[in-house]
Computed example of a mutant assay.
Amino acid sequence: MADPWQGAMDHAVAVARKAGEIIREALQNDMKIMCKSSSVDLVTKTDQQVEQFIFDSVREKFPTHSFIGEESVAAGQPCTLTDNPTWIIDPVDGTTNFVHGFPFVAVSIGFAVKKELEFGVVYSSLEDKMYTGRRGKGAYCNGLPLQVSDQTDISQCIINSEMGSNRDPEVVDKIFSTMRKILCIPVHGMRGVGTAAVNMCLVASGAVEAYFEIGIHCWDMAAGAVIVTEAGGVVMDVDGGPFDLMSRRVLAANNKTIATRIVKEIDAFPADRDDAPQQEKQ
């Protein structure tokens, strides 16, 4: 039986590659930078341009599909996942990296049907690495199969995480508390490349054993979740429960042994759900 979503995935790869070209060209030009929720939550003209390009391309080819995009949600569109085929887009994952020329900037495209993720495409545009994952069909980088690390000893692991954009001292204290506890397990090290999508792809590729973060969004992790799972890893909530795409929380790991050990050290803090009514969001 033919795969009903292969055409959509092929299109996602093509538009992600073109979006990466737009990002690389924009790095050579002046950038208009604006702030969203705070002075450290940035958006550029390129974010908006790339999202509009992807949106237009998808709408032309798949006019009945739904769309959740970082910049459209920031502009007031609802962030609602329905049963309809839905594209979940982060046009420039790693905007702060982009602004500073730090070389990890990704286009992230996840695709869900009946609220289940079907495929993910992450194009690390400055590295020219195309990560793909299709439910039940494996994960790849530039066409080569991906496989998570087989490490089960937490003391031999590298763990990725990020500081996020919330500068509330209580939240920052919890972030540092968690990192301190994980470092003192001890682990080999902690890293973070400034983009959730690439952090998750590094888990899928076996370069690091786990990545966790609270406060990110569905468009940051939709594509990466498929890629990690299809590379043999696990994706769950930071409390060890099932992964919830709208929860703004994720723990991706090479296996449950490592994930369960990390869960014990995480000091969680509240984050408004992506699908919460606008009036309930802070």
Rank of each mutant, 00 (worst) to 15 (best):
E70I: 02
R24T: 11
H100W: 14
P63T: 13
S57F: 04
I185F: 09
M130G: 05
A210C: 01
T260Q: 14
L146T: 08
L251T: 10
A204N: 03
D237A: 14
K137M: 13
S125C: 15
A253N: 00
E60T: 14
E280G: 00
T86F: 02
G69E: 06
D272N: 13
P4R: 11
G76A: 01
G232V: 01
F53L: 09
N199A: 12
I88E: 06
D274I: 03
V73I: 07
V73T: 08
D274R: 01
F102S: 07
G76Y: 01
G192C: 07
K18Q: 15
C157S: 15
P169E: 11
W87H: 14
L245D: 08
D10S: 11
D239R: 04
D244H: 03
S125E: 07
F176G: 06
Y131G: 12
A222L: 04
M221N: 14
R191H: 10
A74T: 12
V92S: 10
D267R: 08
Y211H: 14
L251F: 01
S161Q: 07
D47V: 06
G94C: 06
G138Q: 14
G133W: 02
P270S: 15
S72I: 03
N97Y: 05
A225W: 00
G194D: 01
Q49P: 02
P4T: 05
V235W: 00
E70R: 00
E118G: 06
M163G: 05
E162T: 07
Q28V: 02
G224N: 04
F55T: 12
F53E: 05
